[in-house]
C-alpha cells in the first residue's frame, strides 16, 4: 500500500482566526506530507506494504526492530495528523451532545472539568507531542498526552480527539504562547465527528 496525503475537509483559511491559513498550509502540505513520504520510504520493499496504517501502529511490536522507529515516527505522524484535520471544523466549538456528552460527564464530572484536564495535558507536555482524549477497549474515556508522534493506538487505545502541540502547529501565529493556541483549538473542535468516533465499535 502506498500511503497518500489526505485532502483537508475544508480550505486552508477556513479555521481563521483561530488557526491561520499559512500555518494550516505548511502543516498539511509539508509536515504531514513528510510523514507520509517517510512512512512509504520505510515500508518500501518490506513485507508490510499491505498493512493498513491502524494495524501497523496497533501491532508495532510485531514489526522488525529497524522498522519500528520509522513507523512510530512517520506512521504515528500520518495517523495523528489525519485525525487532527477531521476533528476540527469551521463550524466547530461549543460542547458535545448526546452519548459523548454523557460519557464525558460520567468520566470527568463535567465538560468544564474535562476541558481543564485536557488543557493541563496539552500544556504540561514538555517539547513536541500531542494531547489526547482516548477510549479504551471497554469504552472508558481518558485524557493523556504523548511525546513526539507516538500514537495512542500503540497502547491499545483509540484516540477520538487529539491536539498537536508541536511548535510547528502554532508558532507562526502564537509563537511561544501555547496556552493561547490551546484556547483557540476549543473554538474549532468538531464535536459531532468526535462523537462518531466515540460511538464506533473497536
Amino acid at each position: 500500500m502506498n500511503f497518500t496525503l489526505p485532502e483537508l475537509p475544508y480550505s486552508y483559511n477556513a479555521l481563521e482566526p483561530h488557526l491561520d491559513a499559512l500555518t494550516m498550509e505548511i502543516h498539511h502540505s509539508r509536515h504531514h506530507q513528510t510523514y507520509v513520504n517517510g512512512l512509504n520510504a520505510a515500508l518500501d520493499g518490506s513485507a508490510y506494504t499491505d498493512w493498513p496504517l491502524q494495524r501497523l501502529l496497533k501491532e508495532i511490536s510485531a514489526l522488525p526492530q529497524p522498522l519500528q522507529q520509522a513507523v512510530r515516527n512517520h506512521g504515528g505522524g500520518h495517523a495523528n495528523h489525519s485525525l487532527f484535520w477531521q476533528i476540527m471544523s469551521p463550524q466547530g466549538g461549543g460542547e458535545p451532545t448526546g452519548e459523548l456528552a454523557e460519557a464525558i460527564t460520567q468520566h470527568f464530572g463535567s465538560f468544564a472539568q474535562f476541558k481543564q484536564l485536557f488543557i493541563q495535558a496539552a500544556l504540561s507536555r514538555f517539547g513536541s507531542g500531542w494531547a489526547w482524549l482516548v477510549k479504551d477497549k471497554q469504552g472508558k474515556l481518558q485524557v493523556s498526552s504523548s511525546a513526539n508522534q507516538d500514537s495512542p493506538l500503540m497502547e491499545g487505545l483509540t484516540p477520538i480527539l487529539g491536539l498537536d502541540v508541536w511548535e510547528h502547529a502554532y508558532y507562526l501565529q502564537y509563537q511561544n504562547k501555547r496556552p493561547d493556541y490551546v484556547a483557540a483549538f476549543f473554538n474549532v473542535i468538531n464535536w459531532p465527528y468526535v462523537a462518531e468516533l466515540y460511538q464506533e465499535k473497536q
Binding site: G127, S128, W166, E167, H168, Y171, L172, Q175, N176
Partner: peptide, 8 residues
Amino acid sequence: LWEHAYYI
C-alpha cells in the same frame, strides 16, 4: 533543533 529555533 526545537522548532522555535528556526520556525520563524
